[in-house]
Computed example of a mutant assay.
Amino acid sequence: MDRYPITGRSLEWFFDIDGDLFERQYKRHLSGYWKWKDTPEGKHAERWRVFPENMGEHLSIDETSPSNGELYTIVTNKKARGREHSLVAIVLGTDSDEVLRALRQIDSGARRKVTEVTLDLSDSMNRVCRYAFPGAKRVIDRFHVQKQVLEAVQEVRIAHRWDAINADTEAREQAKLTGEKYEPARLSNGDTLKELLARGRYALFKSPEKWTDSQRQRVDLMFSLYPDLKKAYWLSQHLRAIFSNKKSTVDNARLNLARWYNRVAESGFKSFNTIAATFYEHSDEIINYFDNRSTNASAESINSKIKAFRAKLHGVNDTKFFIFRLCNLYA
């Protein structure tokens, strides 16, 4: 039997360690958590923690959920690219006053040096950036903008799917009453109407060049049966094209977005009009994307790592300990 080099014991002993016992020993003795939690810093850790030493000129702000759906606002330094020294602040909740109170623990001179902050369409996040980083240009993440439009396309699809489900249910009930065997009509690709509208979901998130042959067939069928779905999809693709054009200047983007607003107004889609009104309200922050093409990718990177960390732990029982470990890794 091989020997473990440090203890001299067999490797079999090493692999027989009780996992739960090791976890408790790590928390109480090895990690330093037990002493830290009673320090002034540890006592308020569940509500907020800030790391002024991780400040940079380019920041991202987003919300994340470490456990039980409880939201935290998280500010990250883009330069660290989601690794060590990424975390600038983590604050319980999304209330702008609470987040501002925590961020003001950082020296105002350091906060004034921030030149750019990327964020989503949230009004509370916008207010936090306006007051916490007064010298920074606010840039709304393009993917949050596109996501809202794609959700509006899905609304059109879902409405048609419910109509198809209701029609199928009525036809089944009618067949029962007449004693006939019910066979739903199938389309040229073998799908029923409600199957087509369910299985076509993912294709509507993609641009046409990324469709597989089966997805293209489904989309062609959906668009021939539902012209309004086709119109909604192409509205989303026009917006995607505006953001994807790497040669587009700020002035060109402003003109193209104005044309897109006109198309939305002519479309008659209520949900699209609501979204376009929101975009128009935040037009300056959306247009700012075309200066440096900055996104909220660094914040999303931290979010995905937090979710993976949480999943690996099979959930979070002790939020303060989770925050402690999170800050040790990324702050």
Rank of each mutant, 00 (worst) to 15 (best):
M1S: 11
G8F: 02
W13F: 14
D16P: 02
D18S: 10
D18P: 01
E23T: 15
E23A: 15
K27H: 08
W34N: 15
W36Q: 03
R49F: 01
R49M: 12
V50M: 09
E53N: 09
E57H: 13
I61N: 01
E63G: 01
T64E: 02
P66H: 08
P66D: 07
S67L: 10
G69S: 03
G69R: 03
G69E: 01
L71P: 06
T73S: 04
V75T: 00
T76F: 06
N77T: 03
K79V: 10
R83L: 02
E84T: 13
S86V: 04
A89V: 07
I90R: 07
D97Q: 13
D97K: 13
A102D: 06
S108Y: 11
K113W: 10
T118A: 09
M125I: 07
M125V: 01
N126I: 14
R127P: 14
V128I: 07
V128C: 08
G135F: 02
A136E: 02
R142T: 00
R142M: 06
F143Y: 13
H144Q: 05
H144K: 00
H144C: 07
K147M: 03
K147T: 08
A152E: 05
I158S: 05
A159C: 06
R161A: 02
D163N: 09
T169D: 14
A175G: 06
G179L: 04
K181R: 14
R186Q: 11
L187S: 08
N189K: 03
T192V: 06
T192G: 00
K194H: 10
E195S: 04
L197F: 09
R199K: 14
Y202C: 00
Y202V: 03
L204Y: 05
L204H: 01
F205T: 08
S207G: 12
S207Y: 14
P208F: 04
E209A: 10
T212Y: 05
R216Y: 08
Q217G: 10
Q217E: 15
D220C: 07
D220M: 00
D220L: 03
M222I: 03
F223M: 05
L225Q: 04
P227Y: 03
P227R: 06
D228V: 00
Y233T: 08
S236T: 07
Q237S: 06
R240C: 08
F243P: 03
F243M: 04
K246H: 14
K246S: 13
K246Y: 14
K247V: 12
D251T: 15
N252F: 15
A253M: 03
A253P: 10
L255C: 15
N256R: 11
R259G: 12
W260F: 00
Y261C: 06
E266R: 15
S267M: 04
S267I: 00
G268I: 05
F269L: 02
I275H: 01
A277V: 11
E285D: 14
I286D: 04
A297M: 12
A299P: 00
S301L: 12
I306F: 07
A308L: 13
R310N: 07
K312D: 13
N317L: 12
N317F: 10
A331N: 09
